[in-house]
Design a protein around this nucleic acid. Sequence first.
DNA 1: CGAGTGCTTGATAGCCTTCAAACGTAGTGG
DNA 2: CCACTACGTTTGAAGGCTATCAAGCACTCG
Lengths: 243, 243
Amino acid sequence: MLLEHTVYADSGFAADSAAAHYAGDDALEPWLQRELLRLGWPLQRRRVRAKQHVFRAGQPRTALYLVHAGCFKTALVSEDGREKITGFRLRGDLLGLDALDMNAYACDAVALDTGELWEVPFARLRSELPQFQERITALLAREIRRDWTWMLALGTLGADQRVVTFLFDLAARLQALGFSGERLQLRMTRAELGNFLSLTLETVARSLSRLQARGLIEVAGREIVLRDRAALSGLLAAGGRVH
Amino acid sequence: MLLEHTVYADSGFAADSAAAHYAGDDALEPWLQRELLRLGWPLQRRRVRAKQHVFRAGQPRTALYLVHAGCFKTALVSEDGREKITGFRLRGDLLGLDALDMNAYACDAVALDTGELWEVPFARLRSELPQFQERITALLAREIRRDWTWMLALGTLGADQRVVTFLFDLAARLQALGFSGERLQLRMTRAELGNFLSLTLETVARSLSRLQARGLIEVAGREIVLRDRAALSGLLAAGGRVH
DNA sequence: CGAGTGCTTGATAGCCTTCAAACGTAGTGG
DNA sequence: CCACTACGTTTGAAGGCTATCAAGCACTCG
């Protein structure tokens, strides 16, 4: 089943939405759709199924992809096989941005469930639509801030706090996409979640069990319900290492 | 004493230099100097001393700064006081890039020693020099890849390996700036180093002591000499957690 | 129904953090 | 010039948190 969201996402960290952004900051997807229509360019759609690669690191960079439906992961793989998931991408997020200045993709992009991508004619848009360049710049800067916020979280928070931070972030993004924000449908395995949070899959499972035991959340496989946002926030406010 | 480097730095991760970059990829500083001269715009210089803030998160973003001399740190501070150093910036690096789409700076930038900054007239350059926009885009994308590489390192490597990775990265950058690449003059405290590597200052000190005890490096306060690059590389090749 | 995958939970070990003390150095004012 | 204070660094001892190893369970799919 495809996720047909009704609202559009801010790809940044939840806390970031309060900051002052690029003026005229409406969502990328409707803007792109409008502009492509106006220019009379055909919209190239691409359907993908779970576990299917959108692109791999090192492949020639042929296009940018806008996530229209589904959930994707972007991951870095080092020479010696260590993998690191750099983010989970939802509708409105752009895949391939990080390789904008290269001829090859810099990471792997993999679909976590059935999804649809829009091919973004980057070269033509950049040359013919000056606003597009600014949008791209804004998206890149936002991604940097998002990464930094996660680096802060991973470096200073304990396991439970990282998990809660993730749940809050995902809830905020899903809510911005028109979902409940209370009932989360995870699209990634515990291993992938742990990889992203720099934890083992066992630690993630244990953390979720602990939070459930305290009545803060409800866990049923990949469906998670946030039961007590206040208490969860309290867990975060407890503060982590200061180093 | 000011660091008057003779060559120019790639702000990216050392391993990144092998990748295919933006065509015409000569260093930012000489290019900028040339263009400003050509346009007849005066070069605004700003001198800073150790521990002096270039800007703070939340302040109105008045300018971008190109590091001309000295070493700087950029750091994120969360509401509850947790700090995370996002990078150490040397000559050729640009400060303030991450807030390009905002009216306020997104991080703190602090001088670690005496240094000099060049004020970059971003708005005018962007509107009058189309190439500049592309350069900025490339720098942003490169910063993202740099962050991801560090996220991978911090998430999968042990303390000693993180320290060695940092030393290699710094050595490569200093070498690109015309320094020896063997004898490193650290400009940050053990606490700052630990913060960046998501370790405590004690763990960093212990790690350096261990590496010295094995004869791999020589430590004298903030001066570090890489004695056995092969063995150090071997430490990294040993591999970390795979999660 | 069997194989495969993903999830949970337990026991143990290991690495890093925390707390603590001592040392060296640089800056400062008497 | 030197005592003195503040800061940075090193090292030790103990503990905590997470990783590792292992087993059992649930679910899906061929």
